[in-house]
């Protein structure tokens, strides 16, 4: 976890040092890496027998909990967003 964060700080430093002549394709590289990461997550899930078998019955329960949990949190986040923006105005 902390190694990953260290990479980000390394990126910030190099980005800052080269800001006069920035590398222009950062967004494209980011998009490709996000695709690669999701592909790899898929490979890990697809290769996990226990997970793939559980996708039926257990999957539905898991999906319900995940969806409602996410819905609850984004609703709470919306309240805070309104509050924060209201104060800014």
């Amino acid at each position: 976890m902390f190694i990953v964060i260290a990479f980000m700080f390394g990126g910030i430093l190099i980005g800052y040092l080269t800001r006069k002549k920035p590398f222009r394709y950062t967004q494209q590289v980011l998009a490709v890496l996000v695709w690669a990461l999701l592909f790899l997550l898929g490979v890990i899930i697809g290769g996990n027998e226990q997970l793939m078998k559980g996708m039926g019955a257990i999957g539905l329960e898991a999906f319900i909990i995940a969806t409602l949990a996410t819905l609850g949190s984004v609703t709470a986040a919306k309240c805070l967003w309104h509050f924060v923006r209201h104060k800014d105005k």
Binding site: I3, V4, I5, F7, M8, F9, G10, G11, I12, L13, I14, G15, Y16, L17, T18, R19, P22, F23, T26, Q27, V29, L30, L33, V34, A36, L37, L40, L41, V43, I44, G47
Partner: peptide, 27 residues
Amino acid sequence: DAGGEDVSFYALCALLFFVGYSIGSDA
């Protein structure tokens, strides 16, 4: 090995490096 956690770890490091880069280079 190709789909192992190791490869996604390296991809994640690269990803975060570029996220950092885009922050650092933004004046």
